[in-house]
Amino acid sequence: MNTLLFSIKRFDGKHSWVQDYRLPYATDTLLGCLTKIREQQDPTLNFTSACRHAICGSCAIRVNGSAFLACETQIDDLITTYQSHRFVLEPLAHFKVIRDLVVDFDPVAEKEKNFKPWLIERDDRHDHLQSQSDFHKIAAPADCIMCGMCASECRELNYETGNYPGPFILNKVYRYLRDSRDGAHEERVHVVLDNDLWKCIHCQQCTTKCAKKIPIADEISFMRRQALSMGETNSMGARHAYSFYNDVRKTGKLNETMLALHTEGMYKTLKNRIPFAMRMVVAGKMNPLDMPRPIKGIKDVRKLYEFSQTIQKED
């Protein structure tokens, strides 16, 4: 097949439509193809780009529903991935669309200000020095190029109804949280807690699609541990995590019957979960009388807990 077909979602500020563009096949990047289309076929097609070297983060778009950085994406790789020469191009999800493939970062940048994405220096800081190991703690999160792909892919943001900020804002908080020169540690943890830190599903989309391979899901786990170590254990998410942690120590296995009770408390469980529990019992999926018995070797498992308490951890 010698023709590439790009079905591009257009938007002129009022109306949306899908417009097809064809190019003869050639080895090129996705951004190269978009540039050819604009220069040779349609000067009204809007998209953003600048550095062409995966540094500025301005050319991220969706191909067949999945976010890519157009400048570093080879057409040959897309053909291999999708086994097709036709690609549906759309703007990033979870951003306001300005025109065609151009999205508006301003509202997100405004939102990010609530998380103080700047250094709040420690009171006792006398110079700018930072050890190599301290620098390495912020090297990965500082690589973020704000391309927005993680936010576009974030499964929680798909139907988010609350304050959840999405991955790159959480990455920015983590970046300053780990900075040895920063003095706003507890304040930063409280801000992310107040913005639904425990809503992250750990779906791993952000970590997977990040243009700079930043392990954002691991960073979110770190911030949750920080919150717990500060005594912030009385949220549904925290209680849910502790249910697993405590059950493994007790018997080695999760007690599913008690999970809702541990997570939501007695009042909410009785209020919300009776129909759920009833249909589980009727279908034979739950036996309220069946409590897990300790596994063989449970004492060995508890030794791991004791050992873990004795070692020094990064966090």
């Binding site: 750990h202 786990s221 770190f222 949750r224 541990r225 717990l228 849910h240 995590a241 502790y242 249910s243 697993f244 942690y245 059950d247 493994v248 080695g252 296995k253 999760l254 596994i295 063989k296 070797g297 060995d300 498992v301 791991l304 807990y305 050992f307 873990s308 070692i311 951890k313 966090d315």
Partner: peptide, 26 residues
Amino acid sequence: IEGWTCCGAAQVQDVDDFLGVAINAR
């Protein structure tokens, strides 16, 4: 596997990262 435990279910590492690895190493 005789004596297996819960894998941590993408939850235990949010409480204790080392333990999340250790129970699966076991």
